[in-house]
Amino acid sequence: MLLAVFSDIHGNRQAFEACLKVARAKGAERFVMLGDFVGYGADPEWVVDTAMELVAQGAVAVRGNHDQAVNSSSETMNNEAQIAIEWTRGRLDIAQRRFLAELPMLVEDGDRLFVHSEASHPQRWHYIRSTADAAKSLISTPAHVTFCGHIHRPALYSMSVTAKMTGLVPKTDISMPLLRGRQWLAVLGAVGQPRDGDPSAAFVLFDTTSCQITYCRAPYDVASAANRIRENGLPHWLADRLSEGR
């Protein structure tokens, strides 16, 4: 089965629509969303409604730190993120907020694990910045492949049976075999706010039979997404950064 995995949609309707379209065209049969549905972007209602529909049809979704912050003021965030979250809170209805509140922290699916930040302490929202961070996550789970996001920059790590690590910045549209003899941590770039210098929306396709992973990019209408942010009075930097992919 071909999985399409999305992370960090962040209320960016244009980006998420583009990813769904490309993923469906490439034959994706099942969707996984790794959290941070809201925050930063100007269309949280549409994104959450779409996620709820997909989940009702069998998609997997886990909770991100921004999703949690909508329902709790204890999450600490930087100033712009905080402004965006407070704005978002006012936009979502009870059903949408409940959907986010009830999302699981992680989901195990066969020998795969889906989590927003990393697997060792998901509730602490640590970033995977290095092979050492990746090792901590991989050691904490027996899963063959862990999928996470949170850092908005794609990476692929592996750990051998003797705990030797490899790390790689994956190239777009190149399928790679995730060998059975080792464990893998697939860190996804963001759908709604890429920060790796490429403004196009990032997602991943994974073939559960052949264990081939492909990092994909979907170009989308960045200007419209940025305008929506400005029109709604959100911090301008959140709009500006979309066109730079920073």
């Binding site: 592996s158 051998s160 030797k164 490899t166 790390g167 790689l168």
Partner: peptide, 10 residues
Amino acid sequence: NHLPDLMQAE
């Protein structure tokens, strides 16, 4: 060039 370099790490 497109794949993890397992030998490098090991």
